[in-house]
């Protein structure tokens, strides 16, 4: 698969997420759209990681070089990064949802348009 396919797919998912944030008023949905955007980015990172891995191994094979651990490890940073994004996303969701629950408790709504003041 050409990498551009994955890039376009990720961009499409990302844009859908943005449109969701722009058009919806429900805080939870907006939150979910943000998760969607994060996932789009994750997908892109994994695709790039795979691309670099493939390229490195192929280059080594073409030049008849021994395939070392370092070459096999090429691109693993991308996946590790995705891992950390997931970790942060999970932490973010815990706090974010707690805040939304709090907000619902106070104003009995999750409409972000009601949240246009810094104080109540």
């Amino acid at each position: 698969m050409p990498i551009t396919h994955y890039i376009i797919l990720s961009l499409a998912l990302f844009s859908i997420g943005i449109v969701g944030v722009l058009t919806r008023r429900n805080a939870i949905i907006i939150f979910m759209c943000i998760e969607l955007m994060l996932n789009a980015v994750n997908l892109l990172l994994v695709a790039f990681s795979k691309m670099h891995n493939y390229a490195a191994i192929k280059a080594a094979a073409d030049q008849k070089l021994p395939i070392t651990e370092a070459i096999l490890n090429t691109g693993s940073e991308g996946q590790i990064f995705v891992f950390f994004i997931m970790v942060v996303a999970a932490a973010e969701v815990t706090v974010g949802l707690a805040i939304i629950v709090m907000m619902y408790r106070n104003i009995h709504s999750v409409d972000v348009n009601f949240l246009n003041r810094l104080k109540h």
Partner: peptide, 11 residues
Amino acid sequence: STIEDVKGGDV
């Protein structure tokens, strides 16, 4: 740049 499965590509 393409993405293919290669031998040893177990990243």
